[in-house]
Simulated scan of single mutants.
Amino acid sequence: MVRMLHKMGIRSNLMYTLGVASIGLAFASWATSLKAEPHTGLDRADRWGIFIGEWAPTFFALGVALRIEETHPEPGQESMEETTTHGVPTRAGV
Rank of each mutant, 00 (worst) to 15 (best):
G63S: 13
G24M: 08
D46K: 12
F60N: 06
G9Q: 06
H72F: 11
T71S: 12
W30D: 00
W48I: 06
V64A: 14
N13L: 10
E70Q: 09
L18C: 07
K35Y: 14
A36V: 10
G41K: 03
W55F: 13
S29R: 10
H39K: 10
L25G: 04
A31H: 05
A26N: 04
P73H: 04
I10D: 00
A28G: 14
L25W: 02
W30K: 08
E82C: 09
R11P: 01
S33N: 15
T90K: 14
T90A: 08
W55S: 11
T32H: 07
V2D: 01
E54H: 10
P75F: 07
F59S: 06
T58Q: 05
S12P: 01
E81N: 06
G53L: 07
K7G: 05
A45R: 04
L25Y: 03
K7A: 10
Q77M: 06
A65Q: 09
Q77N: 05
G76N: 08
I10F: 13
S33E: 13
L42H: 03
T85Q: 15
T17C: 06
A31E: 14
G24Q: 00
E78I: 07
D43H: 09
E74L: 13
H39L: 12
F27S: 07
T84A: 12
G9S: 05
L66D: 00
A28V: 13
H39W: 10
P57W: 01
E70V: 07
V64W: 12
P75K: 14
A65F: 11
R47H: 15
G93R: 01
F51G: 09
M4W: 09
T90H: 09
G87T: 04
W30V: 03
F27V: 15
R67L: 15
T32R: 07
G41S: 00
A28W: 15
W48E: 14
A92L: 08
S29F: 11
R67Q: 15
A31K: 15
A65G: 04
